[in-house]
């Protein structure tokens, strides 16, 4: 009915078709976890890096690898370990005896889709190697600045339960992740379906079931489309109120940054585009607030002791703000 009334100002049909294709491809391998898959796609469309957190065995790494595989672009995987050095990530100058000079040998971070597995296993020194790369899309080594190729996406995974041999990610680095996606256990039906599918397939080679569906250039083009979507002034004010609410809340020790506010708006645009709309609604904003803000705010020690999660505080903040209509 509304399609007849309102003609879209931006043609999002191709973007929507690509999103559907990725959803379908990932859905063939990963049972359930629809929210994770949607947020992964939204994160890519919003030009952000994504941190996936979940207990072992909930398809974090598999999802990240499948998503990377669905994009026809350079893929690197870095397994973070306690002895990993910044040069192992960024690269290092190597002496060329024939030329008599040093040549920079690029590290695995010089790719398009970078999967950082178990990111919290590397110490702060190595984590800091990602700071400039993630925010400015460049790496400065020995006075030379090397630009990253577009699209540049960091997909990182971490396990929240295991603390032995892990390091807490610095706040500055957490702020560089657009989303922190929390992956939970599958439902009983999903668990049964996982077992049934595995039993029928009798194969572990799931990765090859997903073929590249998007080119790097398409990702860049879709991002440009998403960036131009319309956001009503009142919704910007609504977002600002939520962010402001996190800074004036007794339950939060650290509120959200202006970068977080921008991230909320960009992600909401991506969600709107995925739904074929060229404008943002309050629900798009509400949907992205938890994954965008949960790793950027810190509950006060007393709330942490009570077991109150960031998500719960954010939910309450949103419910206390009037929906602009």
């Amino acid at each position: 009915m509304e399609e007849e009334l309102f003609e879209q100002r931006t043609d999002l049909s191709q973007l929507k078709a690509s999103v559907e294709a990725i959803r379908e491809a990932l859905g063939k391998v990963i049972i359930g976890q629809h929210e994770m898959i949607d947020l992964l796609i939204a994160g890519i469309l919003a030009d952000g890096h994504i941190l996936i957190e979940g207990v072992p065995g909930v398809a974090k790494t598999l999802a990240a690898m499948l998503l990377a595989r669905s994009i026809d672009a350079g893929f690197s995987r870095i397994q973070f370990t306690p002895d990993l050095m910044p040069s192992d990530v960024l690269g290092t100058p190597v002496f060329n005896p024939r030329e008599g000079s040093f040549e920079f040998k690029k590290g695995p971070v010089f790719g398009n889709v970078i999967l950082v597995d178990e990111i919290n296993r590397a110490p702060a020194k190595t984590q800091s190697a990602l700071f400039e790369v993630m925010e400015e899309r460049q790496a400065t080594i020995d006075g030379h600045t090397y630009r990253m190729e577009e699209p540049f996406i960091v997909l990182a995974t971490q396990n929240p339960v295991e603390h032995e041999g892990t390091y807490r990610l610095p706040e500055a680095q957490l702020d560089r992740f657009l989303f922190k996606i929390q992956v939970g256990y599958p439902t009983l039906e999903e668990e049964t379906a996982i077992l049934s599918r595995q039993h029928q397939l009798k194969t572990d080679d799931k990765l090859h079931e997903v073929r590249p569906l998007l080119t790097g250039d398409q990702v860049v083009a879709y991002r440009n489309q998403v960036r131009k979507l319309f956001v009503e002034e009142k919704l910007l004010e609504f977002t600002a109120k939520i962010i402001h609410g996190t800074r004036n809340n007794n339950s939060l020790y650290l509120g959200a940054s202006p970068r977080a506010a921008l991230a909320v708006v960009n992600s909401a645009k991506a969600i709107a585009a995925m739904n074929g709309r060229d404008f943002v609604t309050p629900e798009d904003i509400i949907r992205v607030v938890p994954p965008v803000l949960r790793h950027r705010v810190i509950p006060t020690p007393d709330k942490e002791m009570e077991g109150v999660s960031s998500d719960e505080i954010l939910k309450q903040i949103i419910h206390q703000i009037e929906i602009p209509r």
Binding site: N248, S251, D302, E306, G307, S309, Q316, E322
Partner: peptide, 26 residues
């Protein structure tokens, strides 16, 4: 005496809280 709750220590579920922040105008 500080008005804290210990229920969260023994439960995985996050307890609900009241946030003293309202923005209703209409």
């Amino acid at each position: 005496s500080k008005g804290l709750s210990l229920s969260g220590l023994f439960s995985r579920k996050s307890p609900s809280i009241e946030v003293p922040y309202t923005e209703f105008s209409e």
